[in-house]
Simulated assay, not measured.
Amino acid sequence: MFRTYELDLDLLQKLYYTHQQEYLRKRLRAIKAVYEGQSRYQVCRSLGCSYNALTKWIDVVLLHGLAKLVAPIKHPNTPQRLSSEQKKELKRMILEKSPRDYGIVRNLWTADIMIEVIQSRWNISLKSSRIYEILEELGLSYQRAHRDYEPPDKDAQKAFVEQVKKLEHLGPKEIILFFDEFSVSDRPSLFYGWAEVNTRPEVPSNEKRKRNRVNGFLSVDAITGKEYLLLSPHAKTEDVASYLGLLFDDLHSEGYEDITIYLDNNSTHKKKMKSKLARLLPLLGLEGKVNIEFSHIPAYSPDFNLAEYIIHQIRLQILHHMPIDATLDSIEVELETYLDKHQLQTPEQIKNTLEHIFNLTSQS
């Protein structure tokens, strides 16, 4: 059905990032999959949509374009099912409580959980499309919590962007990577959740409470988007050096000789780590075989680290769907299994993410 139709993939991606509602994003993923050659039955099975719904979405795109596909469903002639007081209470519930307060073993609010709680509390049945409309009316959007960082050095950020831009044209044996770490614990720290528009939930940056955790070391190829993940019980200087040594060994086996890696200013990423790594490389048989250049991302600038965006996807697509009683072992298995089968961003998406990073300096 798309043989003579030229789908605007740039517009599709822009609409995907603009619209947070999962039911709208599912439509866009379905259209893209059909356009790329999957059969309707394959798309229905993989996305969990009906054949009739998919056919309707295709017709909308062919007749009216992509923008019409993501136009929110409006119900102008339908009486409001929630009263104004119920909406105010719903907002308080989302901002101040968690699903656990209503007997649901999850940390984060989703449309399905809101539907269930509204049904139980007020005996009102709503569709997910109506839930998203109400959330928009209440001035809520789904956002990432953030640390209370100090102000960054704007000049250092601009210099960093110019440095990265100069490395866009690589030889066949050159590779650029962005590296970062993340941790997963049995008690959430940083999280995503619903908050007032143009605000984000905050957590203290000096939290020291004991929690069980597993640490993830992640590097991302700045051209292809390929991820290199290693999970570790510890994240000390020697653990970082060990991960990087194994990473460089893998990259050498893939044919790379010149490696540039960008990383933040964590204390485990500095002189001591590089010294340990230098002693490790000969043991791996890499001495003189790879040229390694470390470059540090400006301080207090997490948005300039490409790896941060992939970690965002890991949390959004994998970790936020784990049950509240998931063990660390089950989390590790889920992470490794998922990333063995999926790449979180395509090369085109990586390119767009880098373009977003470059544009951050013009917004400041």
Rank of each mutant, 00 (worst) to 15 (best):
F2A: 04
Y5H: 14
Y16W: 08
Y16L: 03
R29L: 14
K32T: 01
Y35M: 07
E36G: 00
Q38L: 15
R40F: 02
V43S: 07
R45D: 10
G48L: 11
Y51M: 03
N52K: 14
I58V: 15
I58H: 12
D59I: 09
V60Y: 06
V70F: 01
A71W: 05
I73E: 14
K74Q: 15
H75C: 05
N77A: 11
T78C: 09
Q80T: 10
L82M: 02
K88H: 12
K88N: 13
L90A: 12
I94R: 03
Y102E: 11
V105L: 09
N107L: 01
A111V: 05
D112Q: 12
I113H: 04
N123K: 09
S125D: 13
K127W: 11
S129E: 12
R130S: 13
E133W: 00
E136A: 12
L138V: 07
G139P: 04
L140G: 09
R144D: 15
R144V: 14
A145E: 14
H146C: 01
H146A: 13
D148R: 13
Y149K: 10
P151F: 00
K158S: 12
Q163M: 09
L167P: 05
H169I: 11
L170V: 09
E174Q: 10
E174H: 00
E174L: 01
F178D: 09
F178W: 05
S185E: 04
S185P: 07
D186F: 03
P188V: 02
E196M: 03
N198W: 10
R200Q: 09
R200G: 01
E202C: 12
R209K: 14
K210D: 14
R211H: 11
N215R: 06
A222W: 06
I223R: 06
L231K: 01
P233A: 05
T237A: 06
D239W: 05
V240T: 06
A241S: 14
S242P: 03
L244R: 02
L246K: 11
G255Q: 06
E257P: 07
T260C: 13
I261M: 08
D264H: 09
H269A: 03
K271H: 11
K276H: 05
L277Q: 01
L281K: 03
G285I: 13
S295V: 05
S295T: 00
I297Q: 07
P298W: 03
S301H: 08
P302W: 08
L306Y: 02
I314V: 11
I318A: 12
M322K: 02
D325K: 11
T327N: 11
L328T: 03
D329A: 07
E332Y: 02
E332Q: 09
V333S: 08
Y338P: 04
Y338G: 06
L339H: 04
D340T: 15
D340G: 14
K341N: 09
Q345A: 10
Q345L: 09
Q349T: 14
T353Y: 04
L354K: 10
L360N: 06
T361K: 00
T361G: 00
Q363S: 14
